[in-house]
Design a protein around this nucleic acid. Structure first.
Length: 559
RNA sequence: GCGCCUGUAGCUCAGUUGGAUAGAGCAACGGACUUCUAAUCCGUAGGUCGUAGGUUCGAAUCCUAUCAGGCGCGCCA
């Protein structure tokens, strides 16, 4: 919709430029917006304000010039106004909107699909929680944001790969294996002390029990050194399987699970660090190897290889990101917990050192989640044992509610997750509010079918023969306009990487529908009106369904 | 001490990347089911956009300072 008008404005601007009344050589980038108030039109542009400052002319005069070159579109534009400091406001014809509405029906589940991604390969890496314990609610938020963002990018025409990076190597893995080993021995009655930095969760004991069940006392006579490899591998695998299970129950699936260990096994970490050394982006100091991060925007240099000879996490991460680009991704998006924000400049400087465009690398930081019950915040301390597991919350309030709630706030705001609200079956609960709208629409369509009223099928009739002109109410027009905003929303979310906007869109759309539903009947004695309204409702159902699909939330047909 | 995020109605938050008179939901009060689902709707109120400067035609939005909360500042991940 917006594109059509965008082209019109550009062509009329060209006309004005060719006729010499505007001393411009190029069309500057300008925005076309949906003003928040109806009286400012359907679309508004600040074009004149932008040009005016370049030409040192009055914005309103420039606007007038542009407008005077906007002739011959009376079937699309009903009125153009210059308002305020020099905004140009466009009022579109009803035909313009009604035509758009029939497009929605024709496109159905493809409605909202765009081509702005041009099938470009893009990778979204998210969750990537260490396999040292079950996922908690904070991970869940990151999981939804990543999953939904991936869906949006797909819808926008990108070739998206969802990836989980497994930190299955290093000191923490040793600690993990040791934790299980100690528990194992304790279960046999040995009185040994549990390490201070060990993983104290109950799940470690469960895993130790499982090992006893499968292998008996086989490891009891072994030294720590002998037994550890098995305990590490076994524990990590059990935990990772648990993570995979939790995620799949949460509706989050990955295209690829990428093991850090394989980077080492393939020698990729050595290779890249050597390459950086040759480039002199890495140097030796105090027995360690340092990345010259400060030369690439970080505040200080960072260790990539410790004096002990072990690589740091950064080293394998550099190798990993290099490998991402080598696999052909034009853009790389990492979703991290906000507690890793100090790591962003470090990684960014590494990307630059590797010679990649830093604009191709984005990090989305996910802020904290506070669980609330009975108005009280449940402590979410990361101290062992005090976090709330994702699976627990999903079990309590349901997948749909968790997913929807996690998408209601921008990623960089803290999220208060009200468990009581998420379970409520009323309009206070946003997820029910939206799902109910969908169920209502399905119910209307179902019942008209039962009564033998034929739902007009636009596709059959080759599009435009269905008469939509009975849709005259301001509410109807307003709903139609919002429906037709959907592709613009997808574009905006894909470009700004702000997937949470989709819940806001759904809530306003469904609000308008509920209100309309209570005021007007879709099915009446007036056949033409009924047909037209059925189309409207059907289109609404399509947009709600498509939006919920993106969110990974069920669109129930009855409730 | 340094860095990042946040600060908007009593509460939870939007605010279209610098636009026009700052918006919703909840909580409160009053109403609406002989109706396509009342899991819904309709009506009534609330503001020094943390504070102070600055940038310009124009600032909740950008810059500086400052206050408050959160997080991070390791040869941990």
């Amino acid at each position: 919709m917006k594109e059509i008008l965008h082209e019109i404005i550009k062509s009329s601007l060209k006309k004005a430029m060719n006729s010499g009344i505007l001393g411009l050589s190029e069309i500057p980038p300008f925005t076309l917006e949906r003003p928040k108030e109806e009286r400012f039109g359907d679309f508004s542009t600040n074009l004149a304000l932008i040009i005016a400052s370049q030409l040192s002319k009055k914005p309103s005069d420039v606007a007038g010039l542009i407008v005077s070159n906007l002739n011959g579109y009376s079937n699309i534009i009903s009125k153009v106004e210059v308002a305020g400091p020099g905004f140009i406001n466009f009022f579109m014809t009803r035909d313009f909107w009604l035509k758009g509405l029939s497009e929605v029906i024709k496109k159905a589940d493809r409605y909202g699909s765009l081509n702005i991604g041009a099938n470009e390969k893009i990778q979204v890496e998210f969750v990537s929680a260490n396999p040292t314990g079950p996922l908690h609610v904070g991970h869940g938020r990151g999981a939804v944001v990543g999953d939904v963002l991936a869906n949006i990018l797909k819808k926008a025409g990108y070739d998206v790969c969802k990836e989980y990076y497994i930190n299955d190597v290093g000191l923490q893995m040793e600690t993990l294996g040791l934790s299980t080993f100690i528990r194992y021995r304790q279960l046999f009655g040995e009185e040994i002390e549990f390490p201070q930095n060990g993983y104290k969760g109950e799940y470690i004991k469960d895993i130790a029990r499982d090992i006893i069940f499968k292998k008996g006392d086989h490891f009891l006579k072994m030294t720590e050194r002998e037994a550890l490899p098995f305990f590490i591998e076994f524990t990590a695998e059990v935990i990772l399987n648990g993570i995979k299970k939790d995620l799949s129950e949460f509706g989050v699936y990955f295209d690829r699970w990428y093991s850090e260990k394989t980077l080492y096994e393939r020698g990729m970490v050595d290779t890249i660090i050597n390459w950086l050394k040759e480039k002199e982006f890495v140097y030796e100091k105090d027995g360690a190897l340092w990345l010259k991060a400060s030369a690439f925007g970080d505040e200080k240099d960072r260790v990539v290889k410790r004096g002990s000879g072990y690589y740091t996490y950064l080293a394998s991460d550099i190798a990993y990101h290099k490998e991402k680009y080598e696999r052909g991704f034009k853009r790389v998006i990492d979703i991290w917990g906000a507690d890793h924000h100090g790591y962003v400049p470090r990684m960014r400087s590494a990307i630059k050192a590797l010679g990649f465009d830093e604009k191709s690398f984005s990090v989305i930081l996910i802020q904290l989640v506070n669980l609330k019950r009975g108005g009280q915040v449940i402590s979410m301390s990361t101290r062992s044992g005090e976090f709330t597991e994702l699976a627990e919350v999903v079990r309590e309030v349901g997948r749909d509610a968790v997913r929807f709630f996690c998408m209601m706030r921008s990623s960089d705001s803290h999220l208060d997750f009200d468990l009581d609200l998420a379970k409520k079956q009323s309009s206070e609960n946003p997820v029910y509010y939206v799902q109910y709208a969908h169920a209502r629409i399905c119910s209307i369509l179902r019942q008209t079918a039962e009564r033998g009223i034929k739902i007009p099928d636009i596709e059959e009739k080759k599009g435009l023969s269905i008469n939509l002109t009975p849709l005259k109410l301001p509410e109807e027009l307003s709903i139609i306009k919002r429906i037709l905003m959907f592709p613009e929303l997808i574009e905006k979310m894909a470009l700004s990487l702000e997937p949470h906007l989709i819940t806001h869109y759904l809530l306003s759309l469904c609000g308008e529908f509920h209100s309309y539903y209570n005021k007007h009947r879709v099915v009446s004695d007036d056949t033409d009106l009924t047909n037209a309204r059925l189309i409207l409702v059907k289109a609404l159902g399509i947009v709600i369904k498509n939006s919920l699909d993106i969110l990974g939330v069920m669109a129930p047909e009855e409730m």
